[in-house]
Amino acid sequence: MTHTLAVLVENNPGVLARVAGLFSRRGFNIDSLAVGRTEDPSVSRMTIVVEGDDRYLEQVNKQLHKLVDVIKISDITRDAYVDRELVLIKVHADASKRAEIMQLVDIFRARIVDVGLKTLTVEITGNEGKIDAFEDSLRPFGIKELVRTGKIAMLRGTKSSSKNNSQKEGDVN
């Protein structure tokens, strides 16, 4: 099963290497990882997507907790959350195809952010399903380049995964 972890870390140099190194040396696979500063500049938030059974996730969780720079881990998979990913796609678009592509862009509520002589660059945000569908529909035109930010996620409603919300938790007892 795919799990989405919201991991709060101290915004120290090397913290990404610590987390990435932990995953590789313990043989954990990362599907995607996105990282950036939070409302508190001393804290960064990583959204990590990993695939594995419960026991595997328990180890991922506990090993992450052992990193001194990790402040809090929330596995939000089973809660209601909003997730988004930003993707830029550069697609082949000579004059004959442009109208068709622009129609698709409209349907998916994407945006054209750059126009080249023979290409269009499109920006789309959304959840994984929407982005995959959009990518599939552009594929016949010829995708020259594609870049994804990785998924970011936030709990719905008043619940939050932020630092003040609680102490370091999840030490399974």
């Binding site: 026991r55 328990e58 180890q59 506990k62 090993q63 907790h65 052992k66 030490d171 399974v172 007892n173």
Partner: peptide, 17 residues
């Protein structure tokens, strides 16, 4: 004292950190 040791190799019936 290390929670990560619990359940890492062998499943225990009662873990105490």
């Amino acid at each position: 004292i290390d929670p990560a040791e619990i359940g890492k190799n062998v499943r225990s019936h009662l873990p105490i950190v």
